[in-house]
Nucleic acid binder design. Structure first.
Length: 307
RNA sequence: GGGCAGAUAGCUCAGUCGGUAGAGCAAAGGACUGAAAAUCCUUGUGUCGGCGGUUCGAUUCCGUCUCUGCCCA
């Protein structure tokens, strides 16, 4: 039996959602979201989550699964998606995976180091070291324990340093060793397509979408979350569109400024996504400069997959 | 019509006592393996508004024109 999945990537606001639905309908398939924020409940407007009618059109997985207090991560995602994938493969379905979280997709396609868990206590200890003695102290510790990894990391990038130290403490192995030993965790073919927009048009669309989000009640959505006593410190709320509105609600900036920042930060996010995806030479890029082309693109992918 | 103040990077401006210029923002490029919408790194050549003049040399001084803003008629 052939195990195949279609993967749709691209920057935020590139039309992945509607393309995935369109394709899934043609393929009589289901959609697996690869989005680290749409997986949370109540984060709807700001994450541009598919609408309720859209969610009802095609079966979606990994959307609206967790409370914002939940600490989610790539490894959990990978393990859970693999289970879902096998269920779909068994039903002879070609799943449509769509999303903008590059690392999540990479974890599926190439596997990820998932034998080493997290150590929250140790993380806190290291974080304390960073805060009290600075990035350099943290970096020095890495130089001592894992000089090879230290070579590839800068002292300022404390998140990567903490993870490298954590992996060593928990497994006694260096993180780079584990990367070298890493193998794929699934036996399937992933056919990846990327939506490549003209930069200027994409940015214009992003700006417009942010304005629409505000009109649709993004401020209310964030206010409701805070009223429900969700902490602004939550990772789930450390998200473009949410952190800026939180800062507005806490009277740190004006709404106008918040909107400006959301637009800018979304543009930068889109750019980072493009940088990430550009590196993967297996992705087939499809040029697009208007949402009207999405139907044709769905048709193209459909025939491309079955050619 | 007259007066004054401007015109320098995509934007807002600084600066050069004459030796062709630099900040902030925007932007661009990149890294990334359990927080990834996270976290982090690198990057500033632009007819210094046009044309003339003075000068070895003008973006800088002078003249003039154009445009913008303000004021007076």
């Amino acid at each position: 039996m052939e195990r195949r999945a279609i993967v749709i990537v691209g920057p935020t606001c590139s039309g992945k959602t509607s393309l995935a639905i369109n394709l899934a309908l043609k393929l009589k398939s289901e959609i697996i979201s690869a989005d680290s924020r749409q997986i949370y409940k109540y984060l709807n407007i700001g994450t541009a989550k598919p609408s309720v009618p859209e969610l009802n059109t095609v079966q979606h997985h990994f959307i609206d699964c967790f409370d914002p207090t939940e600490l989610y991560n790539v490894s959990r995602y990978e393990k859970e998606v693999l289970k879902t994938l096998y269920i779909l493969f068994d039903k002879n379905i070609v799943p449509v995976i769509a999303g903008g979280s590059g690392l999540y997709i990479k974890a599926l396609v190439d596997g990820i180091v998932d034998i080493v868990d997290t150590d929250d206590e140790y993380r806190i200890e290291l974080l304390k070291l960073k805060i009290e003695d600075g990035n350099e102290a943290l970096y020095e510790l890495l130089v001592k324990t894992d000089p090879v990894s230290a070579e590839t990391m800068l002292p300022q990038n404390w998140k990567r340093i903490i993870r490298a130290l954590e992996v060593y403490k928990l497994s006694g192995k260096f993180i780079w060793q584990l990367h070298e030993e890493q193998e794929r965790n699934v036996d399937a073919e992933f056919i990846q397509y990327g939506l490549k927009w003209d930069r200027e048009i994409l940015y214009e669309n992003i700006n417009n979408r942010v304005d629409n989000m505000i009109e649709s009640g993004l401020v209310e959505e964030v206010k409701t979350l805070l009223d429900k006593k969700y902490s602004p410190e939550l990772n789930s709320l450390n998200t473009v569109g949410y952190k800026e509105i939180i800062s507005y609600l806490q009277n740190e900036i004006t709404l106008e400024r918040a909107v400006e920042l959301i637009k800018r930060n979304t543009r930068r996010y889109a750019k980072r996504q493009m940088t990430w995806f550009n590196r993967d030479k297996r992705i087939k890029w499809i040029e697009i400069n208007s949402a009207n082309q999405l139907d044709n693109i769905a048709e193209f992918i459909y025939t491309d997959v079955y050619k």
